Computed example of a mutant assay.
Amino acid sequence: MSNGIGIAAATVDTVPGPIQSIERAAAIMNVVAEAPFGIGVGELAAALDLPKTTAHGLLRTLVRVGYIEQEAGSGKYRVGAVALGLASRPLDTNVLRSYSMNRADALAARSAESVRIGALHGTSVRIAHHVFRPDDTAQTLRVGTELPLHATALGKVLLAYTPGLTERGAGATLSAFTRRTLVAPRALSAEVTGVRGRGHATDIGEFSSERASVAAPIRDAGGRVVGAIGLVGTIDRITERGTVPRPGLIELVVAAAAGISRDLTAARPGSR
C-alpha cells in the first residue's frame, strides 16, 4: 500500500508546471503581432512589465529562430516570416465589406447620410464600401479611394487603435487640407487619445471645409480593430452649430460598428 501511495505521489510531483520562459515568449509574440509598424525593446518590456535585459534576451532568441525579425534601420521588432502563419493576418477587405453591407445600408437609411467603411492601407485609409445618401442628389462612388489618416474620422479611428501607427507618423510632415486640419504632432496625439476615450472619432471641416464625419471602430473576434464605419455629410447636417456632432448620429454609428463587430465575432469565433 505504502509503495502504491509513494508511486502515485512521485507521479504527481513530476507533472511539469507552466514554463515561464515559454509564457513570456508567447506574450512577446502577442504584443509584437499587435504592432504592425514594429516595437522597440523598451516599449515591449514596459508593456509586459519585464526587465529590459530579460525582454532583450527573449527577443534575440525569437529572432534567431525566425519568429521575430529586427529592422536594420530602426532596430524595432516585428513578426518574422516563420510566425506569419501564427500571427493575426489583416482581415481581407472583401470579408469586411460582406459583413458590413447590411448594417451600412441600415445606417444610411436611419441617418439619411452617406456611409463609408474603411480599412488601413499603408499609411492611409482605403474606402472598402460606400453607401450613397438616400436622396436624389448626384453622388460619386468612393470605393477604393485613399484618404489621410489624420484628417478624417475613419482615419483617426485607425490611428487610435493600430499600435505604433501614431508614433510612426510622428516625424512626418502632415498636410493641411483646411485651416482646421490637425497637423501639430501634440494636437494630433491628444486627439487620438480622445478617440480612445470616447470610442468614436470626428472630423469637422478638417479634410473638406464644408463637410464633417463621425466614425467608430469595427473589431474582429479577438478584439483587434480591423476597420471603421462612419457617416459623411455637410457640416450643417452632421453637426450642431458647426462645432459638435449631433448626439443621435454618434449613437447610430457606434451601434452599427458594434453590430458589425458582433457579426464578425459570431462568424469567426476567437478570444481576446
Rank of each mutant, 00 (worst) to 15 (best):
S175C: 11
S208W: 12
T239Q: 08
G223D: 09
E167C: 13
T202V: 15
L249K: 00
G199E: 04
A228I: 05
V195H: 01
V157Q: 02
G197T: 09
V225M: 04
P245I: 00
Y161M: 07
R186T: 15
V244Q: 10
T162N: 06
D203F: 11
R179L: 12
A228H: 03
L249V: 08
T202P: 08
A201R: 01
A176G: 13
G164R: 08
A160W: 00
R179I: 12
A228E: 06
V183Y: 03
G223L: 08
A212F: 03
G230V: 06
S175T: 15
I250Y: 05
D236A: 10
R168W: 13
V232I: 14
G199C: 08
G199P: 03
P245G: 05
V232A: 13
P185N: 09
R237F: 10
G242Q: 02
E167R: 15
S175I: 15
G230L: 07
V183E: 06
S209R: 13
I229L: 06
V157P: 04
A176Q: 11
S209G: 10
A187R: 13
A170G: 07
F207T: 04
D236W: 03
T202H: 01
R237D: 09
I204C: 02
A184F: 12
L188V: 13
V192Y: 00
A215G: 06
T243A: 14
T181Y: 07
S213R: 03
V214F: 04
P245A: 02
S189Q: 14
S208D: 15
G242E: 04
R219H: 09
G242S: 05
T243G: 04
V157L: 05
T239G: 11
A176P: 10
I238Y: 06
A170V: 14
I238Q: 07
G242A: 07
I229G: 00
A201W: 01
R246K: 14
E210W: 07
E206H: 02
E210I: 12
T173S: 15
L182S: 08
T181A: 14
L165H: 08
A176H: 10
A228V: 02
G205L: 02
V183D: 09
I250R: 00
A184P: 02
A184I: 12
T202F: 01
L231G: 02
I235M: 08
I235K: 12
G248D: 06
A228G: 08
V214W: 00
L188F: 12
T234P: 11
P245V: 02
T202L: 11
V232G: 11
R186K: 14
R196D: 04
F177I: 03
L174Y: 11
R241K: 13
L158C: 11
S213D: 05
V244W: 03
G164W: 10
I250G: 01
P217M: 06
E167Y: 12
G230H: 03
A187W: 07
H200I: 02
G171E: 12
A176T: 11
R241F: 13
T234I: 13
L249W: 09
